[in-house]
Design a protein around this nucleic acid. Sequence first.
RNA 1: GCCGGCGUAGCUCAGUGGUAGAGCAACUGAUUCGUAAUCAGUAGGUCGUAGGUUCAAAUCCUAUCGCCGGCUCCA
Length: 636
Amino acid sequence: MSENITLTLPDGKALEVPVGATVKQAAAKIGPRLAEAAIAGKLDGSFVDIRMPLSTSGKFEVVTMKSPDANDVCRHSMAHIMAEAVLKLFPEAQFGIGPSIENGFYYDFLLSRSLTPEDLEKIEKEMQASIAAKQEFTREELDKSAARKLFGDLKQSFKLELIDEIPDQKVSVFRHGGFVDLCRGPHVPNTGAVKFFKLLTIAGAYWRGDEKRPMLQRIYGTAFATKEELDKHLAMLEEAKKRDHRKLGKELDLFSIHEEVGPGLVFWHPKGARIRNAAEMFWKDQHYKNGYELIYTPHIGRSWLWETSGHLGFYRDSMYSPMLIDDQEYFIKPMNCPFHIMIYKTQMRSYRDLPLRWAEMGTVYRYEKSGVLHGLMRVRGFTQDDAHIICTPDQIEDEVREVIRFSLFILKSFGFEEFKAYLATRPEKAVGEPARWEQALAALKRAVDQEGLVCEVDEGGGAFYGPKIDLKIKDALGREWQMTTIQFDFNLPERFDMTYIGADGGHHRPYMVHRALMGSVERFLGVLLEYHGGNLPLWLCPVQVAVLPISDKHLEYGKKIEQALRTRGIRTFLDTRSDKINYKIRSAQLQKIPFMAVLGDAEANANTITIRKRTGENLTGIDLDAFVTSQEWKKA
RNA sequence: GCCGGCGUAGCUCAGUGGUAGAGCAACUGAUUCGUAAUCAGUAGGUCGUAGGUUCAAAUCCUAUCGCCGGCUCCA
């Protein structure tokens, strides 16, 4: 019996092939060169191995090294090649999983000893040998029982566990060299098809991501279909290192963290404080302009507050131990919301008062596990640019849309350009009726759509008390950073019995939204530093103009210029050292100061300044006032 | 919290059992200079901390604190 299936090619043409034809055979029907170049196929958007018999019609595509999907296939094959190398060096190795990931791949192993960087070199060598040998990848379909026997004989207990979880009766395995792996595929034709890789790091990883299960050793690598892409990626990793906010924080004297004081507690030095203050002033000003009121609340509160809010029930583990004051337990705040609610409850509120938008730069303290602390990005004491919007149910959608708009405005003001929204839905454990969740989610979704944001849904990722939208920014290196979070709260209004009097004269439950636009000010500034590589926009720079006299002769004139700038509200630094101008320029340049005023005889005589921008560009002999009102100044 | 690595001068780092080193920064002096490092000198460290092994420890062992890379977590 020779039935045919119809493959619809990307150009719309239909290709008839017999049932059971492989991707390779289908490609051969299009052209022999294509068959030769094929590394995988795609049927209705899913990868299929080139050796796999096709049995259903659908949209079909041949993946070659030039396809956008090539990297994905290569990386997966590379993970197998790495596993083969590890097997050679560690015959007793137990294999976990080894997927392709963004920019690379990894594989998890259980080994008799810890890996060292030297091991990585050895493994790389073995991999190169395997690639040079151009070993065929072969695909085989086995009954589960046969697969169990195969991996049982190899003493691969992790694989046995994986087999048990596969619902199908048949599983596929791929072999190359002496290595065999349970795997869906697809794989490149032979190990010679992939060449451009580098092993990067060794890390610990729990089996199946479960902290109760064994810790395996994970090797991360990167791989690309072409050398150019690999080199570009490696260069990007270098660049990311240079932009590390912890490095910049030290070099630019912005902040520090002290072992003697405690990990995750940030000290802002004068220059860092200048940046933070500029950001906060802007933030406050914009909040008043956008219909918010600013409030201040305490840092600690009695246990009553945290019992009522539910924090002690849900998050006690990440709250600091109570302190006893007059025999009463007080806790340092991990969130600001209960305090804001206390203000709400000081009065009877009318529907005419709503919406209320109350904002606070509220510093909170949370116990974060020691292993997760990271520079400014993850700390134990941080300031949220928090606000709570308390409104009626029919105001909620407009309010959310307005928050998103406001957030994008604020983020764009700091230079961020690319945004993505993540919509988090109801988790398993949650409060609030499902109907209200649905309603809130729909409102969030419509608001995101109206702002034209790309949105991804994070199923079950919401907080227990309500759904949320997170806005992330994408930086020049393609990394994503979480900034804004907008969260519905079905919990607190209930727990604190918040009410307002409606038009009908009855008591009603208000809706409440938590939102932080920057998220944590500390992390925000960390991201900002990395995003701009330390070259902050002018309005945030701790020093905007470095005044550099050519020699001590010009010090007097330098002082005059410095003062003139300062009285115009410009942040300056006068370099009084008796070094050469080259040295002063280099030093200002390393401090990433946007403008340098270079002053010598020419300038002093003509009562002008010469500006050197941090880009290296010069504006010779210009008037000071003309400069600070110029486009050059405003654009920086 | 878990796995692995690391911790030497303000910073970046060298020093694998025999009484602590470099460059930069700092300080002093000289130099007064036109677009990314002028020269010379001075000072600075109980080698994260606490135990232990040894005639002898920055170096080896144990514990502890912190940092780095991941994992887990992130209201």
